[in-house]
Design a protein around this nucleic acid. Structure first.
Length: 571
RNA sequence: CGGGGCAUAGCGCAGCCUGGUAGCGCGCCUGCCUUGGGAGCAGGAAGUCGGAGGUUCGAAUCCUCCUGUCCCGACCA
């Protein structure tokens, strides 16, 4: 590829809209351009990087026995009505009517379409054990697209769906995918962790997310320092403490004028937030529920949602709290409360704690469960913290930020039953297909790779994802000798299978160096004055800035060796 | 959807408060010069000031509405 013929519009300055590194650098490097909110064009270099990810994904999916196909992006609403998701999915599903007034939608995911295909084409247990995947543009009308390729409305995704005869076979497939995903992200050269995850709206019984570790990640991961445990924070179980066996003290109502915040109440009563229990009200599918957690804890809404089987949970605002309980926020407590009450297991183990008095300007001290109120449900409802022990082995844990690049689910028979995707087993009996689904955010992988690998000068692509492996700078466009060597190295490297971008622009050296760094191409070859002076060209590695001088004859072997070792390192 | 910004040349911004013929840097075009870390000089092109309405002799500037976009929250590959 010749720079002069390609479209690589690099920018010296950062567009104001870009906040995170990957977005900034993809724009500056001329990899992508925004068309409208959350929708981007992939320019030649951006597409090249995407293709690298796709290729690795393809190879590993095929190796794991999956078959590639391509499903439609425009889908009839009827199919979505069958699973009930036409209503459930919400405004994220872009709906429209075609010229015949048929309700349609743009596919945000393809369970319905693939299940429809499976029920039509697969009838016998002999045909089962299929895993079908596609790499395709998805559209989700995200409430808030942001961070460039990290969270677009339109994005490239690999999604696979498996159809098995029973749980055991389905589990085998899940494990196969788990291993394939580990290989995929390793081959991409990324630092990642598979973690236990909540299965979200797609449903299903069990799932793992694959997280690229990066400070800009939108998820928090819990990683055990000792055992293999790793989980998304929203899923990470908190170990219930042993019950406090202190003797029960007498209930006491105290005046706390104007003290509404945990900090203010504790300060006023001279107690620690860990001795206070706060009562928070949530709206679960519109219904108010109260949750008790310790004053210094946070409610994990995902746990709450799963506990009560709600589709949506949100914190109630002051007015909603008052409407539901008749008590202003800040003084709410469990004693005599009017809404459904859930108790975090940590609180259930406490004795003689302080709560709101369910009356303006009052709190209650020495409150005890069982004596003063009944908790209808006791469950793990709070967010884990870095001071909590590993739920598996009890060792200390660490919290890290991560970017979700892959998610695998065991779906069970939910979709197949809803859509009547049955097969006949050996005994001629009709049975629902057992499904799994496995996604990878292909375009997001590119962004995540950059979040994890960049410096102040630009991108530092891992070799396997780099749009090209080598950038070859001709610093003497108007010098016959330099140009001749640059051209012959360009030809030679390509002949040997190396991907090369030849910078043949009539620009000053500094300009080319800056662009080369910005683009993040792993290897840079410079042909310039040192050739005419000393007969050498320079080979520089983007990742550590190390340089070596070689004769033009030595260059290609050295380049091949470096590429080879970089690719082997990511195996 | 709730909260908060922003919208002026391709990009980054000033001008707005206090109304009076639209500016800077980068980029772009031409010429000279220069050539190992985003050079220098000279000349040049380029803007419905997001849109609509209003106030005013006069609006980028003041008022109203609308749209777009970015950030914080709920969603997710």
């Amino acid at each position: 590829m010749r720079y002069s013929q390609s479209l690589i519009p690099t920018l010296k300055e950062t567009p104001a809209e870009a906040v995170v590194a990957s977005h900034r650098l993809l724009l500056r490097g001329g990899y992508i351009r925004k068309l409208t909110a959350g929708i981007y064009s992939y320019l030649p270099l951006g597409l090249a990087a995407v293709r690298k990810v796709e290729q690795i994904v393809r190879e590993e999916m095929n190796r794991a026995g999956a078959q590639e196909l391509l499903l439609p992006m425009v889908q009839p609403a009827d199919l979505w009505h069958e699973t009930g998701r036409y209503q459930k999915y919400g405004p994220e599903l872009l709906r429209f009517r075609d010229r015949h007034d048929r309700e349609s939608c743009l596919g945000p995911t393809h369970e319905e379409v693939i299940t429809d295909l499976a029920r039509r084409e697969i009838r016998s247990y002999r045909d089962m054990g299929k895993n079908l995947y596609q790499i395709q543009t998805k559209f989700r009308d995200e409430i808030r697209p942001r961070f460039g390729l990290m969270r677009g409305r339109e994005f490239i995704m690999k999604d696979a769906y498996s159809f098995d005869v029973d749980d055991e076979q389905s589990e085998n497939c899940y494990q196969l995918m788990f291993d394939a995903y580990k290989r995929i992200f390793t081959r991409c050269g990324l630092d990642f962790r598979p973690v236990e995850a909540d299965s979200g709206t797609i449903g299903g019984s069990f799932s793992h997310e694959f997280m690229v570790l990066a400070d800009t990640g939108e998820d928090t991961l819990v990683i055990c320092s000792s055992c293999k445990y790793a989980a998304n924070m929203e899923k990470a179980a908190v170990k219930a403490p042993a019950a406090d066996d202190a003797p029960l003290l007498d209930l006491e109502k105290v005046e706390t004028p104007g003290k509404r915040k945990v900090a203010a109440v504790c300060d006023f009563l001279d107690i620690d937030p860990s001795e206070l229990v706060k009562t928070l009200v949530f709206l679960a599918d519109g219904e108010p529920v109260a949750v008790l957690v310790r004053g210094d804890r946070e409610v994990e809404e995902v746990k709450l949602k799963n506990q009560i089987g709600a589709v949506e949970v949100e914190m109630a605002d002051d007015k909603q709290v008052y409407d539901a309980t008749g008590v202003p926020t800040g003084y709410l407590g469990p004693v005599g409360i009017k809404v459904k009450l859930l108790v975090d297991s940590e609180v259930a183990a406490m004795k003689n704690f302080t709560v709101g008095g369910n009356e303006k300007n009052y709190h209650m001290k020495n409150v005890n469960i069982g004596r003063d109120f009944e908790g209808t449900t006791v469950a793990d409802l709070r967010q884990i913290t870095k001071d909590d022990p590993c739920p598996e082995c009890g060792a200390p844990i660490t919290l890290r930020e991560g970017i979700e690049v892959g998610h695998i689910f065991k779906l069970g028979t939910g979709y197949s039953e809803a859509m009547e995707a049955y097969y006949k087993d050996r005994d001629g009996e009709e049975k629902p297909m057992v499904m799994g689904c496995y996604g990878i955010g292909v375009s997001r992988v590119v962004a995540a790779a950059i979040e994890q690998n960049h410096d102040e000068n630009g991108i530092i692509f891992p070799m396997p994802l780099a749009p090209v492996q080598v950038i070859l700078l001709n610093l003497g466009i108007n010098d016959a000798e330099i140009s001749k060597v640059a051209e012959s190295l360009y030809a030679e490297l390509q002949e040997k299978g190396v991907e090369v971008l030849l910078d043949d622009r009539d620009e000053r050296p500094g300009f080319k160096f800056k662009d080369a760094d910005l683009l993040g191409i792993p290897l840079r070859v410079t042909v310039g004055k040192r050739l005419t002076k000393d007969g050498v060209v320079e080979l520089r590695q983007r990742k550590d800035g190390s340089t070596e001088e070689l004769t033009p004859e030595q260059l290609s072997d050295r380049v091949l060796a470096l590429i080879d070792s970089a690719m082997k390192a990511a195996q």
